[in-house]
Structure formats: structure tokens, C-alpha cells
Design a protein around this nucleic acid. Structure first.
Length: 759
RNA sequence: GCCGGAGUGGUGGAAUGGUAUACACGAACGACUCAAAAUCGUUUGCUGAAAGGCAUGGAGGUUCAAAUCCUCUCUCCGGCACCA
């Protein structure tokens, strides 16, 4: 018998599957129900790491299992190909972002094929392909018509030396990663999407989804719907008022001061009245250097009193001081709070530090005695503009008066120009494209100018799952018939890092499409499960700087794709946000198991049936359904351990093991399957069923406890009367010894499991 | 800081109110071998001569019974709106 040579086997079957197109998915197959399994498409970093394997190859186990269960399963793959790294490659290496990205994708396609996953490559999508972003732009136009798009300013990181906007990732400790210059917060006009219009639906529609509670809570908290009251505080000797938002209007009698965000408009309005203006403006300047995150994170509270400004507490009619502090954010509520130091921890801290009055016993007010009820959200509208090159161009042009117009659909895709200098120069890269400006004038007339912003890549990933259904359609983003065949997605498996932003943005996007009648569902993902990360062998996040990166290509070469897939599935339960370290020794154990499966084939003969087999089928099937691939594998290992004890095994039982193993180790099982004389792929065979009668046991082990401690056990027929098992247990010498002379106060019987005597 | 999650043997984990440590890794010893690797076998939570006692990050609680439920607390991980 030949040895298990993974290299030969894997390459051969990958070729064979591809030429036979066994993973090509039809939209409808008679007698089969469709099942859409989705994983987040990948950024083409050019190097497939263990994390990609964990995301795609382990989910492939589930998809293959569904397929063997008789579903018509779609499990597509594509590339989220716009984004910052290509632009950095352009700046640092002088590369063309497009050429660079397509090279990375070629490398990754080859690596992805080595997984042996059932991806249908005919449906591949690439978000930077004009045929894809044409529809991203088209949807933007639809949203514009529907009034979901507007222009507003938001804060961005600005490097005054490089004269460029920095991503949060490019800023560390408040300085620019490239040049070390202190980063400022600057206002930037941009195109916004009204996601806040959907805030209530985004919260309420969570109810019916089969999503883990923790994802629902995280989203609810991110949206942050809270019912409160807006209360006006008059400012002493001025015509101005300060509106504060509070969820605790009942505590207003205890409000002893107000705090405004340093950006609050009242500050400049009251400039003449503020006696310590120099101090105040210095504090405002300092705030500009801090990001929002920094402002919330800082443990030490800072702030400055607006001297000469006093407000009136409408409940107590008393004069109270007004402060500014950076922990109050301009973007939430009204950008001003009433402080109740007796009731709120943060307010108390602030009051103690700055010696502000604290009123301990105060009268409770009614909820809306002093203001009107109002609902506020933490969620902010979505700014999609980026002053970058490598993204979907925003299809907007400006007439000679400067008024914005959408690029008509017939001119889509509104192409990304090529004649761009990528060095940062203070303006958006597209502003330097002669081609883009000429094109605009040619189509729209003299004096017309193009928008030079591109879109946030979260836009591209908000609708990609529709394009898989109809990747080549030139008339629409996805034909409705095809949508009907597949949507909504049955399972969306993804990273926990996408819980708040990607999931929320795409939910919003789908709802907006739904309202426009373009899709038939208002929620795209029926089931969502998050997965954790694979850590380096040292238990830390894999990173080049730590030197703990595990290279999957090397392990696939040495031990095979089947081993890598299976080891990743064996590490722990899937679909929960737990991180597992890669153990270079552990992976060997799985390889050993596969070799034992390979060798045990020799024992096929006239053996006896294995009683454990049906239990194993049941457990493997149930565990896969719950994404517990680790315990499913354990069952197969236990079955093999059973077989080790017997001289020969039955061919039919061996075939069942191969089928159970097929989703995990698709190449090896296919090889063995054909060796047994089968003519059709194991992956087109059907999932084994267990015989319920064969898993019924008539004997059980009863555990005997005395005062909760295990003292004895005995074998007993199933379902005996409580009285019978109690008397049998009481006669046991161990029980007599531990009970002693004490009377038994209570005897508890857990059917077929345990007896506990309490003395 | 805020939101979400996780802590069980030397290691990954199993057990979701009822025998804590299944399955695997590692380690030790043995078989095979000139030898090594591979393979196979035995042992392996801690403590104790044994009987037994102790052990699921820590402290308390509920219960006949807690890794599992409750309260507080510590540590680590993910997210915090321009990384994807």
C-alpha cells in the first residue's frame, strides 16, 4: 500500500475538481434547497496568512457539510481591493496601485486554491474592477436621489507638514507616523450618508435575527438610542441659552454646574463676557490636538471655567458656573451637559478636582418638568469621502457656479483616472489628474469640474454579497430572480472586528436598497457568527515585528492542506470570539490522525459492526451544525481508537468515516474514496444518517454521592424506579461508611445519572 | 474611559446546574532498532505512604449539588467612526 503523499493527492484533486467544475453552482437545482454561506471577502494583501485559512478553510467545512446534506450551496470568494495599502505602495515604492493590486490578487488566488475550498471562481468579484464599482456609483446616485446623501463637515487628522489627511492607523501618540509631526484635528467637508435616519430600524430589526446576543448588544450600544430631555439653561446677563441633553432630568435639582464641549458655539458668542479668555482659548487650542478617542480615554479630567459666565438652574433658580472640558464631545447630544456630581461618577470626579459644589440631598423632579422629551443617538451619519486615490470615484461633477450634480448613469462607470501623482501635496490625488478634468469638460461643458474624492472602502463591502449572485450582469447589479434564489444569506461568518462598523453599514445599505425597491429583504444576514483570531505560538497576535508569524504555505507544503484545515478546526469551537494560539506540535497530532485513517483501510475485512459508529455519526452531525468542529473531530478520533482494538473493520463503516471526514479533509478522503472503487466524487455523495435504535443503551452508570461528594458508582439498568436505586445504593459499603450513624435527611435522585444522600 | 468577549492540567481544549479535565499535544518510561526517526504500549491535575484532602483568574453568595447561576474584583483580547 502506498504512503499518504499529500502533495500528489492535493494537487491532483484540485486540478480534477477544477476541470470537472464540481464546485460550479447553479442558481436553482430541482429538488434542492439553496444555502448561501458567506465569509467576508479579503483585502488582497498578497500574502495569505493563517487568519485567512481560519476564516475561509474552516467555514468551507460547514459549507461542504451542508452540500452533502443535500443543499445547493453557494460559497463565493472575491477581493475587497480598494484601500490604503495600494496607495502606500504607490507612495513608498512608486508602484501603480492598480498594477500592484492585481499582482497581489494573482498571488492570493493561487494561495486560496491551495486550501481546497469549494469556492465557485466563476462568481469571483473584485471591488476595484470598473464593472463592480459602476454599481457602487449607481447606488450612490440612487441614494442621492432619495435624499440620503448630503454635504457636511467632520473632524479629520491633519498632518501640517505632509499636508495630508491621515487615517487613524497612521497616527500614533498624536504624531504622524511618516514624519513625526504633531497631528491636528481639522474640519473637512465631505459627502455624508444619512444612516441616522435608519437608527430606529437598525435597533428594532435586530430582534428577529438569529444573531448572538453579544453582537446585538454591541450594535445597540453603538447606535446608542437613549430617551432623555432637552433642558434650556439661561445664561446670566445675555440673550443666550445653553441647551443640555440629559437622560436623568429627575436629578436637575442637584445640577450644580454646566460643562460645554470646547467646540460649543456659545463660547465665541460670549467672548466679550469671558474674563479669562486667554486661558479659555489656550484650552480650546489644546483640545484641537487631541482625537476624540484620546479625549475619552484620558483618566485625568481637564477643564477651564468660563469666568464671568453664569447660568441659571431652571429648577433651583440658582446661579451656577459654566465650564468647558474636552470629555464633553461636540458630536453627541447638544455638546453640553448639566453636571450632577452627587449622582454621576464622572461629574463627581470633576467637581472634586475643581472644587465645585456638590448638593447631596436634593428634590427629585418629574421626567419632563423642565424640558421636552427627546430621543438621541450616539450613532453619527456616515462620512464616505476620502481624499485618496485608490477608491471608488464619487460620481459627482460641479457646474461653473460650483453646484454639485450626479454623473448620469449612462456615464458610469465614472472611471478612476490613471494620470495621477501619488506624492502627498495638500490636495486630493484626483485633483491632479488632467484626464479627469478634461473628461468632465468634454462631457458636461466648459467650466465644469469633477469631484476629486473617492469613497470609503466600507461602501464597497456594504453590498458585495449581491454581486456574487450575478457577477457578470451588465444591466443591473444583481438580477431580481437570482436575488430571490439566494437572499437572504443563510450564514455570514466573519471577524469580531466587524461587529460594529461593517455589519452596521451594510445593514443600513440593504435597508436603503430595500426602501428603493431594489432588493426584497431589509436584512441580508439571517445568521451571523463571529470568529476569533489565531495567535502566534507565543500567545500574542501574529506580527512581523514580534517574529511569531506562522506561514501557512510552508505548513501546507510539509503537512498538507487537509492537515492545516483540520488542525484549525480542531483548536477550539468556531463561531465564538475566542482566540487560539497556533501550536506547531499540535498540528502534528492531526496529521497523525489522517495517517491512521489512511492505514486503517488495510484492516477492511469481515469484522463485526462497531456499536460506537452511530453515536459518532450523530455527534459529528450535531456538532458541525453548531460550529463545534473540534468536538466533531474528537468523535472521529474516538471511532478510530475503537477500530484500533479490533482485528478488522467493515468496508461500509469505513466509507461512513470517509464521508464524515470529507468536509474536513476533502483531498485525502477523495483519494481513498476512489481507491475503494467509487466512480463519483465523495463530495457529491450524501451525508450519512445514524440509526437511532443503535444508540440506545440499556445500562447506565449511577454515581453515588454523600453530601455532594462522589463516594461510589454502580452499573444499573436504565430507568429503574428511584426507590430501587436508593436502596441498592444504601447497601453499598462505601455509602454505609460515609453516612455512618447519621440519619439521612434527604435522598436526591437524578434519573439515570446520580444519587445524592444528604445527612 | 465607553461598548462587547474570554480566563479550566505543562499546552489547545471537554463538560452550560449532576462523576471536572473527553480528545489531542507535550513529558516520562518501555517495546522495536546497531542507532536514531517513525510507529506501538503504559503512565501523566496538585498533594499524600495510604485513607483521603485540594483544584476551573480572585473574593463572597444561592443550591442537596456550581467551571456552569448571582454580586464584587483582577488580567487579557476585539471595537471606538479614515486599517480592512
Amino acid at each position: 500500500m502506498k504512503n499518504y503523499d499529500h502533495k500528489k493527492i492535493e494537487k491532483r484533486w484540485q486540478k480534477e475538481w477544477e476541470s470537472k467544475k464540481i464546485y460550479q453552482v447553479k442558481d436553482n437545482v430541482k429538488g434542492k434547497e439553496n444555502f448561501y454561506t458567506l465569509v467576508e471577502f479579503t483585502y488582497p494583501s498578497g500574502n495569505l496568512h493563517v487568519g485567512h485559512w481560519y476564516a475561509f478553510a474552516v467555514t468551507d467545512i460547514f459549507a461542504r457539510h451542508k452540500r452533502m446534506q443535500g443543499f445547493n450551496v453557494l460559497y463565493p470568494m472575491g477581493f475587497d481591493a480598494f484601500g490604503l495599502p495600494a496607495e502606500n505602495a504607490a507612495i513608498n515604492l512608486g508602484a501603480d496601485p492598480k498594477v500592484w493590486t492585481y499582482e497581489q490578487m494573482d498571488k492570493m488566488r493561487a494561495q486560496l486554491r491551495s486550501m481546497g475550498a469549494m469556492f465557485d471562481w466563476d462568481r469571483e468579484i473584485v471591488s476595484c474592477d470598473p464593472e463592480y464599482y459602476k454599481w457602487t456609483q449607481w447606488m450612490f446616485n440612487q441614494f442621492l436621489k432619495a435624499g440620503l446623501v448630503y454635504r457636511d463637515s467632520t473632524k479629520v487628522n491633519w498632518c501640517p507638514k505632509d499636508k495630508t489627511i491621515l487615517a487613524n492607523e497612521q497616527v500614533s501618540d498624536g504624531v504622524c507616523d511618516r514624519c513625526g509631526t504633531e497631528v491636528e484635528q481639522r474640519d473637512q467637508e465631505q459627502w455624508m450618508l444619512r444612516i441616522t435616519k435608519y437608527a430606529d430600524r437598525l435597533v428594532d430589526d435586530l430582534e428577529v435575527l438569529d444573531w448572538p446576543l453579544e453582537i446585538k448588544s454591541a450594535q445597540k450600544n453603538w447606535i446608542g438610542r437613549s430617551e432623555g430631555v432637552e433642558i434650556s439653561f439661561e445664561v446670566q446677563s445675555s440673550k443666550f441659552k445653553v441647551d443640555v441633553f440629559t437622560t436623568r432630568p429627575d436629578t436637575i435639582f442637584g445640577a450644580t454646574y454646566l460643562v460645554l464641549s470646547p467646540e460649543h458655539e456659545l463660547i465665541s458668542n460670549l467672548k466679550a463676557q469671558i474674563s479669562n479668555w486667554e486661558e479659555v482659548s489656550k484650552y480650546i487650542q489644546q483640545t484641537k490636538k487631541k482625537s476624540e478617542l484620546d479625549r475619552q480615554q484620558s483618566k485625568e479630567k481637564t477643564g477651564v471655567e468660563l469666568k464671568g459666565v453664569r447660568a441659571i438652574n431652571p429648577a433651583t433658580k440658582e446661579e451656577i458656573p459654566v465650564w468647558i472640558a474636552d470629555y464633553v464631545l461636540a458630536g453627541y447630544g447638544t455638546g453640553a451637559i448639566m453636571a450632577v456630581p452627587a449622582d454621576d461618577k464622572r461629574d463627581e470626579e470633576f467637581a472634586l478636582k475643581f472644587n465645585l459644589p456638590i448638593v447631596r440631598d436634593y428634590k427629585k423632579a418629574g421626567f419632563d418638568d423642565f424640558g421636552k422629551k427627546i430621543i438621541k443617538y450616539k450613532l453619527r451619519d456616515w462620512g464616505i469621502s476620502r481624499q485618496r486615490y485608490w477608491g471608488t470615484p464619487i460620481p459627482i461633477v460641479y457646474d461653473p457656479e460650483g453646484k454639485a450634480h450626479p454623473v448620469p448613469d449612462k456615464h458610469l462607470p465614472w472611471l478612476l483616472p490613471k494620470d495621477v501623482d501619488h506624492k502627498p501635496s495638500g490636495v486630493a490625488p484626483l485633483a491632479k489628474s488632467e484626464e479627469l478634468f478634461k473628461r468632465t469638460e468634454k462631457i458636461f461643458g466648459k467650466g465644469w469640474k469633477p469631484e476629486v474624492e473617492t469613497m470609503d472602502t466600507f461602501v464597497d463591502s456594504s453590498w458585495y454579497f449581491y454581486r456574487y449572485l450575478d457577477a457578470k450582469n451588465k444591466k443591473t447589479f444583481a438580477d431580481l430572480k437570482r436575488q430571490n434564489s439566494w437572499m437572504p444569506i443563510d450564514l455570514y461568518m466573519g471577524g469580531a472586528e466587524h461587529t460594529n462598523m461593517h455589519l452596521l453599514y451594510s445593514r443600513f445599505w440593504v435597508k436603503a436598497l430595500f426602501d428603493l425597491g431594489l432588493v426584497k429583504e431589509s436584512e441580508a444576514y439571517k445568521i451571523r457568527r463571529n470568529r476569533g483570531l489565531i495567535l502566534g505560538p507565543d500567545g500574542n497576535k501574529m506580527s512581523k515585528s514580534r517574529g511569531n508569524v506562522v506561514d501557512p504555505d510552508e505548513i501546507v507544503e510539509r503537512l498538507g492542506a487537509d492537515t492545516v484545515r483540520m488542525y484549525l478546526a480542531f483548536m477550539g469551537p468556531y463561531g465564538v470570539t475566542v482566540n487560539y494560539p497556533w501550536d506547531p506540535n499540535g498540528v502534528v497530532g492531526v496529521r497523525r490522525f489522517l495517517e491512521r485513517v489512511w492505514k486503517v483501510k488495510e484492516k477492511i475485512g469481515k469484522g463485526k459492526a462497531t456499536p460506537f459508529l452511530h453515536k459518532a455519526i450523530k455527534k459529528v452531525s450535531e456538532d458541525i451544525e453548531e460550529y463545534k468542529f473540534n468536538t466533531a473531530i474528537t468523535q472521529m478520533m474516538m471511532l478510530l481508537n475503537e477500530w484500533d482494538k479490533t482485528g478488522s473493520i467493515l468496508e461500509d463503516e469505513y466509507k461512513i468515516l470517509l464521508k464524515l471526514l470529507a468536509p474536513f479533509a476533502p483531498h485525502m478522503t477523495e483519494e481513498l474514496w476512489f481507491e475503494l472503487g467509487n466512480k463519483k466524487s465523495i463530495h457529491t455523495s450524501s451525508w450519512p444518517e445514524y440509526d437511532p435504535e443503535k444508540i440506545v443503551e440499556d445500562m447506565v452508570t449511577m454515581v453515588v454521592q454523600v453530601n455532594g461528594k462522589v463516594r461510589a458508582s454502580f452499573e444499573e439498568r436504565k430507568n429503574r424506579e428511584d426507590g430501587e436505586v436508593i436502596s441498592r445504593a444504601m447497601d453499598m459499603p462505601e455509602v454505609k461508611k460515609w453516612v455512618g450513624d447519621k440519619p439521612i435527611k434527604k435522598s436526591i435522585v437524578v434519573k439515570n445519572r446520580l444519587i445524592n444522600f444528604v445527612t
